[in-house]
Design a protein around this nucleic acid. Structure first.
Lengths: 343, 343
DNA sequence: ATCAAAAATTTACGCGCGTAAAGATTTATC
DNA sequence: GATAAATCTTTACGCGCGTAAATTTTTGAT
């Protein structure tokens, strides 16, 4: 190993015995140079650990090889998991992922978009905060940077949207619960941060109407992203007031359900579908922890793989077509019902 | 709002009626220019939304304003939470955080360090994978980039380490469990990824020796970062074989405990310290979900705030002193015992 | 008003690489 | 072996900004 430090591409090109523009061409696309040349460069790469200065590269390219990923709350394992899948695929496609989390705050989301703009990414995968988002700011951002929205839709914004078919989620859980016993009431936050929550409520109402059953929506108070605690406190209140209209509860999402189950446990209520169970509880998302709740949670699962895959594919297609699609597409994936012990 | 697009600092300086080097100076430190000049620049900033090209800036500065944060597994809410806290403080200090997760893989950790090197960060906060880390690669990285290790120590590597005093964690839980009933056995993974796990086992053995009690270490099989499932399967096996030496179980960390509790629930065993409880279970970390387990988990809590604070402070001090400390320091924070329902 | 210190300006160069154009060389095809 | 096509080399310029040095202007105190 020659420990001669290579300072720049000129020096490295000299070591290769190749001109600098050829080396530059190699780094942009190794297959764009003759194979004999490629070998010479790659042999030199083994001897000297040179890598081009990323800032100098990006200064001179209008299209960076960076892809931004923005999620609303990274401490939520659901988003952490989907971010992980997306990152992997971005890397596999030869891009450099940069991950951001807005941590529930509009101000932070906006400042992320700002710094993302200055990073001149090839494209951005954005899961917006939802209700807390600054719609105008996101709209403006999407005009400047090729952006695909995922998870949480904002009508008309971004070149495409990839997410979940909330009706598929709710229809399956409602149908299952109704078929196997009492039909469910719907447990949610009153002012949900995420638009999916509203679509799920609507889907619940529609399903109940279709089944000619009386709907019961229980909207509990609470702001922010501490869904488990909100679910727990809301459930405790309902349980203590004995105001639960049915003994089958469908939670809007798994994190609320985790809190609901904690409340049931605290009050000594057994949850499940067997004998001696006071309640059935089901939910949506297939949160990474939903198989470890007590009891394990019956839920409608996202297909993480497919959503991540399609999001990345869509963004790559967008980048290939120069940052614009002829028309905005919305791709929604159905849920898969996961039967566990809670319902 | 003049919608004249500003292309570069020259144009912007012209709009300000100030020279370009002065504008450059302003962006590096607004207080380094006369207040009348600052006002002129800031008024122009309001009219024209110019921001300097980040790549051109970083190309010419040896000290970037970027700070890298590397965690071993971001889908673990523990790391997500600590990353969140660290990011906030980095921003507050005027730096730009860039977050990476190795997702448990050595290869990925190494490639993160590689790309981090090319980002020329002012400093890096690194929580290494632990056993899976490529020690030599990390050592080499730390020689090139000012790095503070946190959470997971590697002897002699990095300019400083900020983490938890594992003995404080284990001594408090062992002491509490012993004082209030039967003394605990210790439940862990056989080949833990994280060095803290080894220190906790050692601390357990030392505590039991000090109390003149017979230690029982239960090491369950399992690789990777799916701790909950490993804990659950290990617990199921122990429960079904009835080979649990005591009815008080101290888990090495909360994620294992979450799995342990799930197993207990599956087998119909009530956990807690009241009448009719078959087992007591306690653990370490105060994982964000530990208050929502069934029953809620008695645990020894990290002081997330303090650890994040000190990590960032240490790194900023390191940056200020030019990237080197006279000697390597290790700062360990004690735990705070959190009594909940499980023990 | 005077003068030294502080701050701003002008001028100039460099960072490391992208990229275009023109000419030289290699490769593929028959 | 001749020819066209593909690839490489040389040369040259530009990107947007940091930064140093020398000069000029402003500031603040006497």
């Amino acid at each position: 190993m020659h420990d001669n430090k290579i300072r720049n591409m000129d020096e490295f090109a000299a070591k290769c015995g190749v001109s600098r523009p050829t080396v530059s061409k190699y780094f942009n696309d190794p297959d764009s140079v003759r194979s004999s040349t490629r070998e010479r460069i790659e042999k030199a790469l083994e001897r000297y650990d040179y890598q081009p200065n990323i800032y100098a590269i990006n200064q001179n390219r209008r299209l960076t090889k960076t892809v931004g990923i923005v999620v609303p709350y990274l401490a939520d394992p659901f988003f952490a998991e989907i971010a992980r899948q997306i990152e992997q695929r971005i890397v596999a496609a030869g891009y450099r992922p940069v991950l951001f989390s807005a941590y529930g705050e509009q101000e932070l989301e906006n400042s992320i978009l700002d710094s993302l703009r200055s990073l001149k990414p090839a494209g951005v995968l954005l899961a917006p905060l939802g209700r807390a988002s600054d719609r105008a700011a996101i709209d403006k951002f999407c005009e400047d940077v090729p952006t695909v929205l995922f998870d949480s839709n904002i009508d008309g914004i971004g070149e495409a949207f990839v997410g979940s078919d909330n009706f598929s989620f709710v229809s399956q859980t409602v149908e299952y619960l109704t078929r196997t016993g009492e039909s469910p009431c719907f447990f949610e936050m009153r002012y949900p941060a995420n638009p999916n929550a509203n679509k799920r409520r609507t889907a619940y109402l529609k399903m109940m109407e279709k089944l000619r059953l009386e709907p019961h929506v229980l909207s509990v108070e609470g702001e922010g992203w501490a869904f488990e605690e909100i679910g727990r406190l809301g459930a405790l209140k309902l349980l203590d007031e004995k105001s639960l209209p049915t003994n089958t509860v469908l939670c809007s999402n798994d994190r609320l359900a985790i809190g609901f189950l904690a409340a049931c446990y605290e009050r000594g209520l057994r949850v499940g579908r067997g004998e001696g169970c006071a309640l059935r509880v089901a939910s949506h998302d297939d949160h990474p922890y939903s198989r470890f709740t007590c009891p394990s949670l019956t839920t409608a699962a996202h297909d993480y793989d497919t959503v991540a895959n399609r999001s990345v594919e869509t963004l790559l297609a967008l980048i290939d077509s120069g940052g614009r699609f002829p028309s905005r597409t919305e791709t929604l994936f159905p849920a898969r019902l996961i039967l566990r012990a809670s319902a």
